[in-house]
Design a binder for these strands. Structure first.
Lengths: 189, 189
DNA sequence: TGCGGCCAACTAACTAGTTAGTCAGTTAGG
DNA sequence: CCTAACTGACTAACTAGTTAGTTGGCCGCA
């Protein structure tokens, strides 16, 4: 058996991501994570501190990466919404972790990186509005919240009216992108 | 000590609603529910079966009531969105329970009453579209999903960009209602 | 009015299994 | 041979669910 602390850490994080995404903090089992990572449970405590710290590490790795990896293009918000929509489909764990986080930890403790990424996006939207390239009907933070919120509508993890039928997802995607287009388009009523 | 089984059931349901809304199924503690209801734990099992059944009872009582108590007015979807928005602010437990439900139980098992209420709302939207009173730019189910989804944007329980400042909530409410107005208005581009 | 007994409502204490976290010791590799 | 990586076995606390037994109120009856 080769010994590689970095690889063990990585396996633990990966196993923890699956476990936490599926069951949340309270529902996750440390023993299950260790078993899935083919590592000893004590290593979790040695590398990450405790269960909650492990969750934070996983949350940071997945959610912060997602937020930072989908850059905004304030001149093409429908395209941004589409990319976010697709990312959520491809990596559903990030949204689930974010939901668990907000339910189990309260909404007060967002990582600084997420806050910073958001502020940068608000600034980008504000700049595009000032330049007259997109609608200034809404304040920039509100417009961003609309786009972000609409992009979540494809996720099966929100208790909303869920998409139906074989091409329900494609329909939903079109709905979201078109909505963003309408809401961000200049003029009209 | 007066004995009133109906009242005991009611107290247990109320305590369970608080506990489940705050901590979810896995995080909820049966002993805590019994203590908060000032009842014996065994009564929970006698009246509701087990912890999961108790959650279902609570979920049904709160979520189904919410869905049924906010009737749709397909001719005034901005008003409907406003009422839903306000309801979620006033009774945040219903949304939290719905989120816990979708995370912990999977999205497959929605109560028949919720599905029925939703179908009725889709039908109402479709009728208003056929009558030409609202935009038919989106399929009726999609339009309803948009309105519902946007109405959730005031909740602090969604990991989204949260409202900021003292009057952030009022701003958000205006954003949501105005968005729905734009998306449901006839013609334009 | 008073009484006895019946039963639903309720309770304290328990069980069996689980769980996060610890620790003394072992092992591989440089 | 030294140290970081790792392990198995442990514990103390917790947890859902059960059970045998108790109690209060109500109803028929005198």
């Amino acid at each position: 058996m080769v010994r590689d602390a970095d690889d063990t850490r990585r396996r633990l994080l990966e196993a923890a991501a699956t476990e936490f995404a599926e069951r949340g903090i309270a529902g996750a089992r440390v023993d299950r994570i260790a078993a899935a990572a083919m590592a000893n449970k004590a290593l979790i405590y040695s590398y990450f501190g405790n269960k909650e710290d492990l969750f934070e590490a996983v949350f940071h790795a997945l959610v912060v990466d997602t937020v930072e990896d989908v850059p905004i293009d304030a001149d093409d918000l429908p395209g941004y919404a589409a990319r976010l929509f697709d990312r959520i489909q491809q990596q559903p764990y990030a949204l689930r972790l974010a939901l668990w986080h907000s339910l189990e930890r309260g909404s007060a403790t967002m990582p600084a990186a997420v806050v910073a990424a958001n502020e940068q996006k608000v600034a980008a939207v504000a700049a595009a509005q000032r330049a007259g390239r997109i609608s200034d009907r809404f304040p920039p933070g509100e417009l961003l919240a609309l786009v972000t919120g609409l992009s979540l509508l494809g996720s099966p993890n929100l208790a909303l009216t869920h998409t139906a039928g074989p091409d329900g997802l494609a329909v939903r995607r079109r709905t979201v992108v078109e909505s963003v287009r309408i809401l961000t388009a200049k003029d009209t009523t």
